[in-house]
Nucleic acid binder design. Sequence first.
DNA 1: TTTCAACGTGTAATCATTATAATATGAATA
DNA 2: TATTCATATTATAATGATTACACGTTGAAA
Lengths: 148, 148
Amino acid sequence: MQNPNTQGKSMEELNLFLQEHGVKPSYQRTRIYEYLLNHMTHPTVDEIYQALADQIPTLSKTTVYNTLKAFMDAQLVRMVNIEEHEARFDVDLSTHGHFKCEKCGHIYDFELDMSEFKSDFLKTFLIKEKNIHFQGVCSKCLSASDQH
Amino acid sequence: MQNPNTQGKSMEELNLFLQEHGVKPSYQRTRIYEYLLNHMTHPTVDEIYQALADQIPTLSKTTVYNTLKAFMDAQLVRMVNIEEHEARFDVDLSTHGHFKCEKCGHIYDFELDMSEFKSDFLKTFLIKEKNIHFQGVCSKCLSASDQH
DNA sequence: TTTCAACGTGTAATCATTATAATATGAATA
DNA sequence: TATTCATATTATAATGATTACACGTTGAAA
């Protein structure tokens, strides 16, 4: 068992999945996609690279960039621009919002019902992506600072 | 008349406005705020700098950064992180969404009624900012590409 | 086996942003 | 008026994420 935390998906299954979505599989690509599946915490390029560099000593950060770009082109991954300086990535393609806590830095997902959203102004626009980014203090940090 | 496009606000009025909002006025700060008022097109740091460098030859880009930070701290300006690599700035503090056209790059404002938005998950969170960034193709570019 | 395109890698370049240090400013005070 | 002191402005250098580039590898098709 080489990769324990694969959420039940074998390398072969992942390869097939990538292939079906127009991404030619490779060891690096499969392992990066696997990482994204097992760490749905909106990781940065560096986090992905650092985590995999141990197991794939030859891995290059450029490969992580290239792979994420390929995933984005194939609509397998979405870029999350909630951080000021660093891009984050999300395999969850469902419509959901992101909340960034200013205290602990954690990024939470929250459900979002956009079905009732209507905009006269945008009705003649082609909307491809909807990014909803909230910011503030999460409940955990709020109750922590309540202590006196 | 030194600064023609001031939307009717004189330097003195702008100085007073800044002062009332906790920002100590200076020539540079007033001119930068004036620029933001007259160009509500979500300009980048560089756009602001380039536009004012002619009129204020000693202006430093660092000053533009520092000033925008001061404005943000004073809640006079909001950063718009809709661009992948460059921050944009908005003096319009009302709740509204931004739409970026992939073709022409223009960033549109659109009205947004968040009053009916409810989230069980976030009800214990302190929400300080709500950023709504849509992306796609604007009506102008759509009809332009319809031509055959 | 040859070929050829695509992929992966390491290095260098780019570019927005931030840090730093020196100078200028301007109000308060002596 | 001269002095002081905090703050603002500026130029330069440093940082750090991202991209460009060149080269070596791979892997499938012919």
